[in-house]
Design a protein around this nucleic acid. Structure first.
Lengths: 344, 344
DNA sequence: CGGCGGTTTGCAAACGTTACCAAAGCGGTC
DNA sequence: GACCGCTTTGGTAACGTTTGCAAACCGCCG
């Protein structure tokens, strides 16, 4: 398994290693003929540059680290895919790892990426812990947080690209109000996550403005799995309730809710309208058709990547950047217009 | 962004770089005290070894390449997750990339992994193209194919771990026969994939032995998305049909079929039993409860990883290894026992 | 005190690139 | 024919590790 190196090529082409290197990186200061000859030898010998050596020498790896909390979650899978596409287009390769629930795994991954001299790291997570981590490593590698929001009372403002959760919350309330709903529930309130806090505050604020009644239902369960949503829904639906609509913090929760509603004989949307958040692929399926707020994954990915590349190439500009992507309501079949006075 | 290197540590600890290296790789030939001192300095200075340099020098990277065709596919996502877990337990890190539909992407990824001097590559794919590729690279990096089967007429036998598709096909036929079905369809026959060919042949063989009538429905669509399954199902269900059961090549196809059946008013399983293959997470959901054959992802992952590590550590033993994992029938709600003579 | 194993250390050469700087080649001008 | 500027090439020192080999140290025996 002896591999052909740049030296072999140089010898066979009758030039110096420097010249080979130049031919490979198509530097301007090389004679056309020489380049051709060198490249031909490369092809003949099946030469592949050793990225390890290249990175070590040039101190840039063209590698980006990407950490997602859970590969099985379709929203994150879609995000990863989009990021991979954008990165590749920009000449970077993505190392994808999932942080999974294990404590300390996030730290391990940062460590790994750093040791590998990744040019930058994208961290997708909704937890606040990610924030501290990103700050700690910020000085060593450019980091962009995806989808996370700074806790408002944090002194730290990290480079962040996320959906505008506050606006999303408001939009949800406004949408339900427009359909005539006046008594609604917010399903899956989470402690310790600024992302969710913002979403909730936006919802509450708009609902208040519009004179709607809001019941918040906190979740002790995971809010990113259908199973968690089912648990939550069982609690909510098994007692009598007055609400005509539910805003769920995620599509997963919404899907769980719909399933339980189905089992308990609560017709959706006739008795209860359901509005989700994320617009995961499964939400569009013909026998689900969940009305939801779309995060617009491609835009999110593109924006995050662009920011990261700026940081890498232009250096840390000192301040921090935060980009918000406005979500949009995707109307499908799980929200119903209530009869009554015309609502614009 | 000046990083602390092994030299800095050596200087600060008053020893040579060799000694630091030994302390870090806890070599046996080092004095306990010295090691402590060195490690303390490392901690104080926040030293992180440069994996690039380490790999370059030691010519092993502890990196494994993993290629999956599609991250959005839950089966592959689950597989990736399991592999990541196993690999990490064995001290390897996984670089996950999706080959996506693009032509040439597979080649690009192999190239990338090679350039990065990955210690080995895991390739998950059901297409035959993967086979040639694995063969071409086999000499340069240990490769294990996951889930793919050699085309039977290929002279090449690559290192492979896959579900026993032939046995799976047989089990499917036997299971349906046991429930009393005698007139069945095989939905989603694929050209150019040995995996699917084997599955089909197994099904056909057992069905033949048991005297069942089989109608094969070839698929011009993708067989790994629900959407593809829907297209296929529409073709099948819109004309009158005599079959009482369908064996779908994948859960995705089965899910698509069930949806269309629902839309067209064909009750499942009363009028039509549906049997899937893969046991993806969504198949278990309470309002789906798809009866299916399980690929047993964790076993698959573990087995593949063990094989790859053997190849890496003990070298290519000359011959090729093929491991088959027997699938198992997961009984849920979409297959019905037909009334009639008792069938064992 | 010389010598002898065994443990612990250090020197220096890899590993395969890139990058800086000097030098060679080559027309053309004065 | 010396000199100049431009293009093209090569030599060599990095980059941050590991590794083989030689040297230093240490306690002990004869």
């Amino acid at each position: 398994m002896q591999r052909v190196t740049i030296k072999d090529v140089a010898r066979l082409a009758g030039v110096s290693v420097t010249t080979v290197s130049r031919a490979l990186n198509n530097a301007p200061e090389i004679h056309g003929e020489t380049r051709e000859r060198v490249l031909r030898v490369c092809r003949e010998q099946g030469y592949r540059a050793n990225l390890l050596a290249r990175s070590l020498s040039s101190s840039r790896s063209s590698l980006l680290g990407l950490i997602v909390p859970d590969l099985a979650n379709p929203f994150h899978a879609a995000l990863a895919l989009n990021l991979e596409l954008c990165a590749q287009a920009a000449g970077y390769q993505v190392m994808l790892c999932s942080s999974r629930p294990e404590e300390g795994q996030l730290e391990t991954l940062f460590d790994l990426f750093f040791s590998q001299r990744a040019d930058g790291v994208l961290l997708s997570s909704s937890g606040d812990g990610a924030y501290d981590l990103a700050r700690r490593w910020q000085g060593d590698m450019p980091c962009v947080l995806l989808g996370a929001c700074a806790p408002e009372d944090s002194p730290h403002r990290g480079n962040t690209v996320s959906v505008d959760n506050y606006a999303g919350g408001r939009m949800a309330a406004e949408y339900l109000h427009r359909l005539g709903h006046r008594d609604v529930a917010y399903l899956g309130l989470r402690e310790g996550s600024a992302t969710h806090a913002l979403r909730y505050r936006g919802f509450l604020s708009a609902a208040g403005d519009l004179g709607m009644k809001v019941t918040a239902i906190p979740s002790p369960y995971s809010v990113s799995t259908i199973e968690g949503g089912r648990h939550l829904a069982r609690g909510f639906l098994s007692a009598p309730f007055s609400q005509t609509a539910v805003f769920a913090v995620s599509d997963s929760v919404a899907l769980g809710l719909i399933q339980v509603a189905d089992e308990l004989g609560v017709p959706v949307p006739q008795r209860l309208s359901v509005l989700g958040f994320d617009n995961i692929e499964y939400a569009a399926l013909p026998n689900i058709r969940l009305t939801t707020l779309s995060q617009n994954t491609p835009r999110l990915a593109q924006s995050a990547l662009r920011l990261l590349l700026e940081l890498i190439e232009d250096g840390d500009g000192g301040g921090y950047v935060r980009r918000l992507i406005t979500p949009s309501v995707i109307e499908r079949a799980t929200c119903r217009r209530l009869p009554g006075p015309a609502n614009t």
